[in-house]
Amino acid sequence: MIKYFIRRTLLTIPTMFLCITIIFFCLRVVPGDPALIMLGENATPEAVEGLHKAMGLDKPIWEQYLTFLNDTLQGDFGKSIYSEKSVSKQLIEAFPHTFNLALMSIFIACIIGIPLGIVSARKHNTLFDDGLRVVSLIVLAAPAFLVGIFLLIVFSVQIPLFPSMGVGNGFFEKIYYLILPSITIGTGIAAALIRFMSSSMIEEINKDYIRTVRAKGIPEKLVFYKHALRNSLIPVVTVIGLNMTGLLSGAVIIEMIFSRPGLGSLALDAIFARDFPVVQGSLILFMLIVIIVNLLVDLSYSLLNPRIRQS
């Protein structure tokens, strides 16, 4: 068990290393001089050269790469070109907002997705099940930004129930501000969850041990909720893991629509301002989150299902 944990954790190191390398080379080797892009076409040669020196761009590429790797490993992503603020500080400030959004979205996805998934499995091949499948298909296909825009219009502009921007202060106000954005992201995940949950439940209910339980004369409700449900909850963890990259991509757009500070809007603003250090830093943090979540999903998966550990 501990051996598996250690092995799986160590396996993330080459992936992280590769990610950092890809980000570095994407921003350096592709055509275009970062300094020139940042300063604009009309920059004086002196200014470009000065920025080259400041960013270390005058050194050979491998030396830049080693410095970059060294700094990154120490959590130093440099300074923002415009605000002169330390990138790691900006990332730490923005992180909680996105974290809250992600947590709340997953929560909403679970409270919608799990019960509906169970109902869809119980009423398999009925009109209700078909209807649910159509709705989840539409929700899965509608782009998050469209859903977000219309939630914003209906529930914050036309009927002023919820705030249209900001994050609020204090626990309850924060949750209040989170409701619309996290419904936007959460319903998309819920749609995937319903389909996943329902198919795993149907698969579970057809297994031998359920037949045994039924043969013993246990009431059908108990068979469903006590025995089958427990085992079919495992995929929920997987769905959340699989949706993590989608969730973070969604956060970029949702944070923009609802004018929330956070990693997404930080990265987006930096991209439009061509603020390279901030872009680099936020991309690395994004990738780190995804890798860590995938690791946690794998580990919890092996905790939930002992069969995986052995293989």
Binding site: T15, I22, V30, P31, L248, S249, I271, S282, F286, M287
Partner: peptide, 20 residues
């Protein structure tokens, strides 16, 4: 491939479109 999979596609595309 694993490494590329960890990038959120949208941000990755935004970043590359910034340089290209």
């Amino acid at each position: 491939m694993d490494a590329i999979m960890t990038f959120p596609l949208l941000l990755f595309a935004l970043m590359l479109l910034m340089v290209l």
